[in-house]
Structure formats: C-alpha cells, structure tokens
Amino acid sequence: MIAGIEAGGTKFVCAVALDPQTILEEIRFPTTTPEETIAKALNFFMEMQEVHGPITSLGVGSFGPIDPNPGSPTYGMITSTPKPHWENIDIIGVLKESMDIPMGFDTDVNGAALGEYLWGAGQGLDVVLYLTIGTGVGGGVVVHGKPVHGLTHPEMGHIAIPRGDDRDSFAGVCPYHGDCVEGLVSGPAIAARAGRPGQDIPAEDPGWDTVADYIAQALCTYICVLSPNRIIVGGGVLGQEHLLERVRSLVLKKLNGYIRHPFLTPEGISQYIVAPGLGTKSGVIGAFALGLRAARES
C-alpha cells in the first residue's frame, strides 16, 4: 500500500492506495500549525495501517518554497514560505520519526506534473508543464519523466508581469514581490482587487479581462522558455470556465504567430492549454508517484 500527502497552504489531502489510481481512503483537513497538521496526517496513516495493512512508501508534494535536494542538509524542509509558522519546518524529518519507509518529496506542483505525465493529460509527452492558480500560483515541469530541479525548483508564480499603471494600479498581494503572477492573479489577489471573492464576480465583469491578460502573459513566457508539449492548468481560479477560453485566445494574440505549431492555432489551442486529466486528484496522485519513485530508488 502506498500513501500520499498533497500538502497545500490551505489544506492537506492525505490518501492511501493499492495503486496510484485505486484510492482506498482519503481525508482532507485545513492546514493549521505544523504540529497539529502533521499529527493529523500521521494519525490517519496509523489508522489506515490497522485497517489495510502496512504502508510501504510515502510521497509528499508540498507548498513551498522547499528544499528538494536529497544531498542538502535542509532536504525535506519547507524553507522561506510566507505561510505563518511553517518556515524552516522539516516535514520529512517529522514524518520519518514515525514512519521508517521510503519517502519522496517535491513541490506540490512538480508532483502534480509528474502524476499528469504518468496517468493524466501529459501521457506520452516529453515536456509537461502543470500550473495551478488558486490560493497561490505555482508551476511544475516534467522533462522526459523527471521533475525539473536546479538551484532549487521552479517558482513560476513569482515571475514579473509587464503592465501599465494607467491600466491597473493594483499593487499586488505577494509579500515578497508585490505584483508578480501570484500577487496579481491568485485567489486572494482577485478578491483584494475586486473587494469580493472570485466566485462572486460575474463572468462579464471587466476585471476578468485583466486577470486573463496577466495569466496569458505568464503562459507566453513559459512557452518561449520551456517549449512544453502541453500546458495543464488547475486550481480554483481556472475553475471559472469563461476565464480559460479568454486565456487561450490571448495567448495566441500575444504570441502573434511567432512560434508555429498546429497546437498554437485557433483550432489547436484547446488541445494545448488543457484542464487536468486527473481532475482534482492530480496533487495526491502525484504524491503517490513521488512515493513509488522513492521506493524504487531505495
């Protein structure tokens, strides 16, 4: 039996499965303090072992920034996060104290990208980009079956977005960068700009044009830099169906025919910028993938 944790800044999703797409049981609960939240996860896994038998590996896809380098002294830690109380928390170290099994660790979006590459909308492709736009904005990339790491890991939600202050004077909500992608189009950013949550804003509100424009600018940057075979977009903000269509159209407009491919046409764009093939399970199934990979490597 494998176990997975999708450790989000808003909620934790913990699950156990016989294989990545056969989930036996799952639990969701708010992300509060590290002590309380990790304890809930461990209690769930202990209960599951009593019911279903031993867990053989565990994967954790975590909000970040994190240290994903196994050779680093801070491997397994959440590092410079703005999430209160979670900075420098050794999440893998705490889990290892109670569960001495192989554990995989990466960002939640790298995990989701890996899950989509193996079993979702990224199957059979060389370069897969997974982007989530919700409470935060994050992007993960899988190249030839491996999540991208370098100095640390991609931080796609924190690139700068060109904009004219005459069009939008909103300062942004990111505590580090103000008006980066996350600071401008995350759920909290949309609510701060409009004075109400995104789900309460009608589709015809002109504010959505600004949000779509910023998302499209970010996607164009990712396309030019990474040349992904497919972009998979998830998260609560993109749950607004009208928004995804606006983003697709704006991506084509901004690329302006420079990058030529059948997917980058009005007829092909809906096959290129797509919703997750695993639906809302991309994160936790990606965590299973991280756990299975750790078991193989051990």
Score class of each variant (00 low, 15 high):
180 C>I: 03
134 G>N: 00
168 D>R: 09
155 E>F: 13
158 H>E: 09
188 P>Q: 04
129 L>P: 03
42 L>P: 02
261 H>E: 10
6 E>F: 00
289 A>L: 02
244 L>W: 01
131 L>W: 01
160 A>E: 08
49 Q>F: 11
274 V>G: 10
101 I>M: 11
213 D>S: 11
105 F>Q: 12
259 I>F: 13
49 Q>A: 13
226 L>Q: 05
88 N>Y: 09
209 D>W: 03
294 A>Q: 10
129 L>A: 15
289 A>S: 06
186 S>R: 00
196 R>P: 04
132 T>H: 01
33 T>H: 04
111 G>N: 06
280 T>V: 07
292 L>P: 10
34 P>V: 08
269 I>A: 12
141 V>M: 09
3 A>T: 00
290 L>H: 12
91 I>V: 12
265 T>C: 05
170 F>T: 04
177 H>S: 14
125 L>K: 11
48 M>W: 09
234 G>F: 13
143 V>W: 08
36 E>K: 14
17 A>C: 06
213 D>R: 13
70 P>Q: 10
69 N>D: 14
99 M>A: 13
245 E>V: 04
29 F>Q: 08
282 S>T: 09
27 I>V: 13
136 G>C: 00
15 A>K: 00
177 H>M: 14
235 G>Q: 12
282 S>R: 13
157 G>E: 05
13 V>G: 02
46 M>K: 12
27 I>W: 04
290 L>C: 13
230 R>T: 15
65 P>D: 01
226 L>C: 07
285 I>S: 03
181 V>N: 07
195 G>W: 02
135 T>K: 06
163 R>Q: 14
190 I>T: 01
128 V>I: 07
109 V>K: 07
181 V>A: 07
12 F>L: 05
213 D>E: 15
99 M>Y: 15
117 Y>F: 15
292 L>H: 09
237 V>I: 15
126 D>L: 06
200 D>I: 08
157 G>F: 10
71 G>E: 08
13 V>S: 03
42 L>K: 15
265 T>I: 05
182 E>Q: 15
247 V>M: 00
60 V>N: 05
69 N>T: 05
215 I>F: 04
59 G>V: 10
125 L>N: 03
73 P>C: 04
241 E>K: 06
239 G>S: 12
60 V>A: 01
133 I>V: 13
28 R>F: 06
6 E>G: 03
46 M>E: 15
221 T>W: 07
135 T>H: 00
293 R>W: 10
238 L>V: 14
276 P>V: 10
61 G>W: 08
264 L>Q: 00
249 S>I: 02
10 T>D: 03
112 A>Y: 11
20 P>I: 05
37 T>S: 11
233 V>T: 04
294 A>W: 05
52 H>M: 11
212 A>P: 01
34 P>A: 06
42 L>H: 12
116 E>F: 12
83 K>G: 04
4 G>N: 09
235 G>N: 11
25 E>A: 05
174 C>Q: 00
51 V>R: 15
167 R>W: 09
116 E>C: 12
138 G>Q: 02
38 I>Y: 03
148 V>Y: 07
229 N>I: 03
217 Q>C: 13
266 P>C: 08
84 P>A: 10
74 T>N: 01
288 F>S: 09
273 I>H: 06
19 D>V: 07
141 V>T: 06
52 H>D: 09
220 C>K: 13
287 A>W: 08
83 K>L: 01
34 P>W: 05
284 V>F: 02
244 L>R: 07
294 A>V: 08
242 H>R: 04
138 G>K: 02
213 D>Q: 12
262 P>C: 05
280 T>W: 00
